[in-house]
């Protein structure tokens, strides 16, 4: 083997070792629905804030403590599960005036980049997760300030990692312009979620 061939083989070996090491650090998680909360708040006529939640979501993520850039997040929210503690309003929020849940049954977020911050950001975030949010038929790139809350085994031995994030979205940017400005444009969103580690080390199903 000539000099170039030897170097090429060495590079390949090194790359394979690095990839294996990386893979060993990253772990797959499935969203634990019963410990996931997706909350929103919006101004009503400027007099008060109305809060609500989405009760049904699915998702998975890969988390790598040593190399956060290798992490990724995918979240899917079922639009019809909106709950603002008022059935008539929920029906209205589901139909063509707002979320149009029959036309756009899912809100999805798919990360494209995860960055660890050298020190916590203004909202206490430890990471910035950039990704594509698709809502109401419109896809926009957003940055979610993610705060890692903790990880470890739960009382039943399943390994969990949990996060939270808070952000503000403008509904008009997603084509939801009905009743502006009486119903506010800015929507405060809080998401807190836990994932159950998948694999041979004591993880289990993410279902309730």
């Amino acid at each position: 083997m000539n000099c170039f061939g030897t170097r090429f083989a060495a590079c390949l070996t090194l790359g394979a070792v690095l990839l294996t090491t990386n893979a060993a650090h990253s772990a797959q998680y499935a969203l634990d629905k019963s410990h996931t909360s997706i909350l929103f708040g919006i101004s009503h006529l400027g007099y008060s804030y109305t809060y609500g939640r989405f009760n049904d979501a699915e998702g998975k993520f890969t988390w790598d403590n040593a190399n956060p850039a290798a992490s990724s997040f995918q979240l899917l929210i079922k639009t019809a599960s909106i709950d603002s503690n008022d059935k008539a309003r929920d029906d209205h929020l589901r139909n063509a005036d707002f979320f149009n849940a029959s036309q756009f049954p899912h809100i999805t977020f798919v990360s494209t980049k995860v960055e660890a911050l050298p020190q916590p950001g203004p909202s206490g975030q430890t990471h910035n997760v950039t990704g594509n949010l698709t809502m109401h038929g419109v896809t926009k790139q957003i940055v979610l300030p993610l705060k890692k809350l903790g990880e470890g085994k739960g009382p039943f031995g399943k390994y969990r990692t949990g996060f939270s994030c808070q952000t503000t979205l403008k509904r008009s940017e997603f084509g939801m312009t009905n009743m502006l400005p009486n119903i506010g444009d800015e929507v405060a969103v809080t998401i807190s979620f836990e994932g159950l580690r998948q694999g041979a080390d004591g993880s289990g199903s993410a279902k309730r």
Binding site: L76, A101, G137
Partner: peptide, 18 residues
């Protein structure tokens, strides 16, 4: 088209029965 009645694929990230 694209609604829950005639859904479009959500992409490879979501393995979901639409």
């Amino acid at each position: 088209d694209g609604s829950k009645y005639l859904p479009l694929s959500l992409g490879p990230e979501f393995d979901l029965d639409l």
